[in-house]
């Protein structure tokens, strides 16, 4: 018995050190969703030292005139893995990179593309300049060694053209604000693929730290619904070819808006709101409970202020 225990301890310790000493690798896979169009789907999780922050969807469009990359991931290591993955699928050079908004999982891979023009909305560029380093520090805290050598590389150009034509792809740039204050959505008219960025989450609870307000977000989702897409790539969660991701977003945002309004009207404290049950229909969405709690922290004070 004693020997067995010692063996067990030795094995466990050995295993642990093997895991922590092993090379950290994202093992990225690209899924083709339309001609020349690829999506690298992240996990439906929160940032952790196990997933290295790979919780985000990135994508790229291979044209006859170079590759367009949509978001660069949470770390230098991710950005490098993404670029390597692209090079295994095409000989075309990376021509243009977009950061859809200023959240860390969408731009901290920029180092791997610093030789290419990186475009973002003007407000996104300001937000990254202002908060980028704090975000990067927080990512080191959350995911650890995966972040090694990651530094903020600011987007170098404004995404100011309404339409970009590369090869036989016509990519329309659409500006929204609902998720982060400046959200770039890309619609490839030639394939019908809509890269919805974090304006749309699907099967992974949406996050609200910089939303200008739920009503704004809801209104902009109506505009996105008017686009006749064949494939919708959410910022987080599986790719869809119909309106179900938009349905889920709108249902959840309406419930959130209504819950916060009614809670403030009846005088609930933040503690009481956080403890409220989340309806059954949203419980299949990953991280619903914890993201609801975060959203209460972000949004409830403004709702409370309306009922003084």
């Amino acid at each position: 018995m004693l020997f067995r225990m010692i063996l067990l301890i030795a094995l466990t310790t050995g295993l642990q050190s093997a895991v922590s000493a092993g090379p950290l690798s994202y093992e990225l896979n690209a899924e083709q969703v339309a001609p020349g169009t690829w999506v690298v789907q992240g996990k439906l999780e929160d940032f952790s030292s196990l997933n290295g922050g790979n919780i985000v969807n990135t994508g790229f469009i291979v044209t006859d005139d170079g590759v367009v990359v949509i978001d660069t991931g949470p770390s230098r290591r991710y950005g490098e893995a993404l670029r390597k993955l692209i090079s295994t699928l095409t000989d075309q050079p990376v021509r243009l990179v977009f950061n859809t908004h200023h959240h860390p999982d969408h731009f901290l891979g920029n180092q791997a593309f610093s030789d290419v023009g990186i475009q973002a909305l003007p407000i996104t560029r300001e937000q990254i300049a202002l908060h980028g380093n704090a975000f990067a520090e927080n990512m080191y805290r959350l995911v650890g060694d995966w972040m090694r050598s990651t530094e903020v590389v600011l987007p170098s150009e404004n995404a100011s053209e309404p339409l970009i034509e590369l090869g036989d792809h016509r990519i329309r740039l659409l500006r929204f604000t609902g998720h982060s204050g400046a959200d770039l959505v890309l619609f490839d008219e030639s394939t019908g693929v809509l890269f919805a960025s974090d304006m749309v989450f699907y099967q992974r609870a949406l996050t609200t730290p910089h939303t200008p307000g739920i009503p704004v977000w809801l209104g902009e989702l109506e505009r996105i619904r008017d686009i006749t897409f064949s494939v919708l790539v959410p910022g987080h969660g599986p790719v869809v070819s119909d309106g179900r991701a938009l349905d889920q977003m709108q249902a959840y945002l309406r419930w959130l808006d209504n819950t916060l309004t009614e809670s403030a009207r009846s005088g609930l404290t933040m503690t009481e709101v956080i403890a409220l049950p989340v309806p059954q229909q949203f419980q299949e969405i990953a991280l619903t409970k914890s993201e609801f709690s975060r959203s209460v922290a972000h949004l409830y004070p403004a709702y409370e202020a309306r009922f003084f």
Binding site: T269, T271, E272, I274, A275, S293, A297, H298
Partner: peptide, 16 residues
């Protein structure tokens, strides 16, 4: 003493 699981905003943490 009721606190959230995590202090989302460390300058405004709701407690009861």
């Amino acid at each position: 003493v009721v606190v959230p699981e995590f202090a989302e905003d460390p300058t405004q943490v709701p407690i009861t």
